[in-house]
Nucleic acid binder design. Structure first.
Lengths: 223, 223
DNA sequence: CGTACGATTGATCCTGATCAAAGTAAGTGG
DNA sequence: CCACTTACTTTGATCAGGATCAATCGTACG
């Protein structure tokens, strides 16, 4: 599509959750042991028994699936405050590892289950958390199935900006390869698209891993 | 990729749920009123207040999101026995409509909430259901982000075959356009790929909406 | 039988992938 | 402190998978 940037890029059906949503999971913050992972280290792998769930204190985590031939799909990046690994099944369906050095609080799933069995409120929170992740996944399916490379990049940057407190300067804690595997693109396309967007004045590549968004986050782009 | 069919198409990380999974949601079958929808009729639309959840008695339902310019992503097809519309949020994040004439049982979400508040077991089922849908969504992200057109088609057909009782003759209750919007392809590519796969001997187009799979479902393809 | 919608097929185009080569930045050890 | 290494990123040239545009073909139905 020529006017690749014309349709509303950032918002519309793929909009983020209403503000009320985030704090709710606060009640899911459980006791657990503090742990650290080094950049690149695996936290858990697909097929393993699911022993713990995690809340991130600092750092970035990627969740992904991988095909036998190495093709990888990063379903989500997770940052401080985010929870992950809260699976309903015994076996992990995803892998997760540390994009940067990370600190997390790890809680045994047994503990979570026990809470859920004693408190309907808590059980409901588990449900809401899963439903929220599901909605995010559906957003991402629309992106992967139906949006152009430029749209994907802009949406990704806007989303990062929002999660970093709606600032216009976005810190990329992950590599171009990670971004590509999240957006269903190649590393070259990600790189090229960033320079193209800079040429068009949509963003500014302040540093290799720092990008300034030149329009208000959430506004539409007009090519 | 030339050997588009070479890597394991149907299985591996995108495998379906273990058999034990399905029956569990049986306990979610609630009292409700029987309703009918005509082919093409909308069941609910994105942004609406979520009043009911549904269990399908007969027919096919599609769940989807749509962009302002009409691009559509069908996140799932649902068949007899499947539940949908069991959202945690008040507002619908998806639309759903009848692919074929449908019969459903509609249960007010209020009723569901009441059950969840009274029974920890029931609340847990809600969670498991959401977690299962989430895992399916993650499978689909891998497909949309990283698999070729041929792989997508084969996986889709295998999945349908499995859901129709592992028979080798698959009935397509949806149009090529619906399939395309589910797999992130165009209608022409779907059509072409089906004939290509037939030429290669992987499938047989018995009728326009009936396909015979020529290899055991779940086995790998060798181009 | 004629109409209308859905599906197939063909020709061509274009977005993003692939292959290849520099360029850049941050260590590391001498 | 600086040369060297290594990992990551950018840029260029070319290719190809799937999209787009366009026409025809089927099939179900009134």
């Amino acid at each position: 599509m020529t006017a690749a940037l014309a349709p509303d890029l950032t918002l519309e059906p793929t909009s983020a959750f209403p503000p009320f949503a985030e704090p709710n999971t606060g009640m899911l913050s459980l006791a657990g042991s503090r742990m650290g992972y080094r950049r690149g280290e695996e936290i858990f792998g697909e097929g393993e028994d699911a022993g713990f769930c995690y809340r991130i204190l600092s750092g970035t985590v990627r969740q992904y699936r991988i095909l036998a031939d190495g093709r990888r799909q990063v379903s989500a990046f997770l940052f401080a405050g985010d929870m992950f690994g809260l699976d309903a099944d015994e076996q992990r369906r995803m892998s997760a590892d540390a994009v940067t050095d990370c600190e997390v609080v790890a809680t045994p799933r047994q503990v979570v289950f026990r809470h859920a069995e004693q408190s309907v409120e808590f059980a409901k929170m588990l449900w809401i958390k899963a439903a929220r992740d599901l909605a995010l996944a559906q957003d991402h399916m629309l992106l992967l199935g139906r949006q152009s490379a430029a749209e994907r990049i802009m949406y990704f940057l806007s989303d990062l900006a929002r999660r970093q407190g709606n600032r216009s300067v976005v810190e990329l804690t992950m590599s171009r390869q990670d971004i590509a595997d999240h957006l269903g693109l190649t590393i070259e396309t990600v790189s090229r698209m960033l320079t193209t967007l800079e040429d068009r004045g949509a963003i500014e590549l302040t540093a290799q891993r720092r990008i300034t968004l030149r329009m208000n986050v959430g506004l539409r782009l007009h090519s």
